[in-house]
Amino acid sequence: MDYVLKTNALSKHYKKFKALNEVTMNVPKGSIYGFVGRNGAGKTTLMRLICGMQFPSSGDFEIYGVKNNDAALSTVKKRIGAVVENPSIFPEMTAIENLKNQYRLLGLPTYDGIDELLELVGLNNTGKKKAKNFSLGMRQRLGIAIALCGNPDFLILDEPINGLDPQGIIEIRELILKLNQERNITVLISSHILEELSKIATHYGFIDKGNIIREMSAMQLEEACRKCLRITVTNTPSAIKALDELKLEYKVVDDTTIDIYAKPNITHLVTSLANENCEVTACTEQDQNLEGFFVSLVGGGSDE
């Protein structure tokens, strides 16, 4: 698999505080990589390191196979667009002026494509309205338009739907999907609004207290969150035998726990297990969403 971004034991320390602790993650090409973590987990820090705003304390990262200490990185970085924290826009300028400024910074010979970009993000009717008078959603969309100047193929978005109203959230979601599907742009998107992320992400990276705790594809996550009946038994080999006889789809979670992916008749199930000398000590229905899965990964409680 081709990766757009790979980090290798990337760490960032602020005095004694470890904002990132040997983070190793891989963003596959063409994916929408949902970067999930609580506030202060290290999501923005990682994005700041990738964008060159901060320097790693140790470890390294590769963008399109070019290491962060390689001189060629500045060339590769032209393929990246990013909105980290707040959209980087001049408030005194209009949307067009902001885009023109970005075009000049990129050294693009003409302003061709600005109208198309404005239309793409739905800001084509803003005219002479200055960015300072834009709503939060409009600023966010202008930030994305700026990030899209120069046709990047890797987009980094840090909490792009934070503070947006439901309509704004839908617009940004549709825009990200459109960019990924129509322009084949790989997107690294961080968020703690998990349900929203679950609607677009193809891959996930879960981060907590500066550590990547798990990376998985959306398919794997779906599998993990699949509705099932979780039983705790006293004799797992016997239970397996009984379940095979009942022709039920199941997965052995650990020595005493089995997930059954079906809706069996509980009486039949318990009787069959009892016939195999296996007692059911607990039985619960599992129906996890992304939020539940995340909580089960990092544990509940405060993020402070």
Partner: peptide, 18 residues
């Protein structure tokens, strides 16, 4: 200072300007 406060300096760094 407006480059810092508006965050536009980030754009410069992201696109590879040293």
């Amino acid at each position: 200072s407006s480059e810092f406060t508006s965050g536009v300096i980030r754009n410069k760094l992201i696109m590879g300007h040293s």
